[in-house]
């Protein structure tokens, strides 16, 4: 089966600094790929290149067989197929939830209002927020806003969804409600590329883990083998940092004296 997304010898610079080096990555349709790695390793930049928010400087990137790094690429078309969810939600603050959801379908895709609205309502119900359809973003919690942001992308009927540290700004209770939505999409067989620091979630939801450091992909493996038996020393070191917290001794009740 051929890949839906394929990076080949992909390079990206910020000025002199090379942030992505010779990236080779294939993602099949329906696959859930989680990208892990230390901050600044290029994970987010990789996602942002896939929907044209960043410009690449070499190599090749194809979506469903079509080369994206050509001048002729219509990024507006691509972005309708590649949904993106950001760390800080970025809902449009001056629009109600429903207006946020319908902006793309009505203005970009020129769909009928009743049809787009029916879809938006169904998706809102699915994430448990149908009662918030007329609320404004600032009236919602972070977790609610993030679920709305996911629905906003889904309303465009994308082939792929990109999640860029979407739980990093949320408190633990809200993390759960957002992760459940993403897990649901994974179960439905949607193609997902996820950048996250939620290790347990990565392990549970991923078909494949991609480990990056300093702009390179160091390791690609199935989640179980990555978490139990990482191949590179750098990945071992990275995972140790996360197991450190869990391995802290449980404090017995302190003696007050």
């Amino acid at each position: 089966m051929s890949a839906l997304i394929e990076f080949k010898g992909f390079n990206k610079f910020f000025g002199e600094h090379q942030v992505l080096k010779d990236i080779d990555l294939q993602v099949r349709s329906g696959e859930v790929v989680v990208i892990l790695g230390p901050s600044g390793c290029g994970k987010s930049t990789l996602l942002r290149c896939l929907n044209g928010l960043e410009v690449a400087h070499g190599g090749s990137l194809t979506l469903a067989g079509k080369e994206l790094l050509s001048k002729a690429t219509d990024w507006r078309q691509v972005r309708q197929q590649v949904g993106m969810v950001f760390q800080s939600y970025h809902l449009f603050g001056h629009m109600s939830v429903m207006e946020n959801l319908l902006l793309g379908p009505l203005k970009v895709q020129k769909r009928e209002r009743f049809e787009a609205q029916a879809q938006a309502e169904a998706l809102l119900a699915r994430v448990g927020l149908l009662d918030k359809r007329d609320a404004y973003p600032r009236q919602l919690s972070g977790g609610q806003q993030q679920r709305i942001a996911i629905v906003r992308s889904l309303c465009m009927n994308p082939q792929v969804m990109l999640f860029d540290e979407v739980t990093a700004a949320l408190d633990p209770e809200m993390v759960k409600e957002v992760l459940q939505v993403i897990q649901g999409l994974a179960r439905d067989g949607m193609t997902l590329l996820i950048v996250t620091h939620e290790m347990a979630f990565a392990r549970a939801v991923a078909d494949r883990i991609v480990f990056m450091e300093a702009g390179r992909i160091l390791e690609q493996s199935a989640p179980e083998s990555f978490f139990t038996n990482p191949q590179t020393a750098r990945a071992q070191q990275f995972l140790e940092k996360f197991s450190f917290v869990e391995s802290l001794p449980k404090t017995p009740h302190k003696e007050l004296s």
């Binding site: 928010l53 309708q80 949904g83 993106m84 902006l103 970009v108």
Partner: peptide, 8 residues
């Protein structure tokens, strides 16, 4: 960015 990402 958010607007561009939905294809506006």
């Amino acid at each position: 960015e958010s607007g561009r990402s939905i294809g506006l």
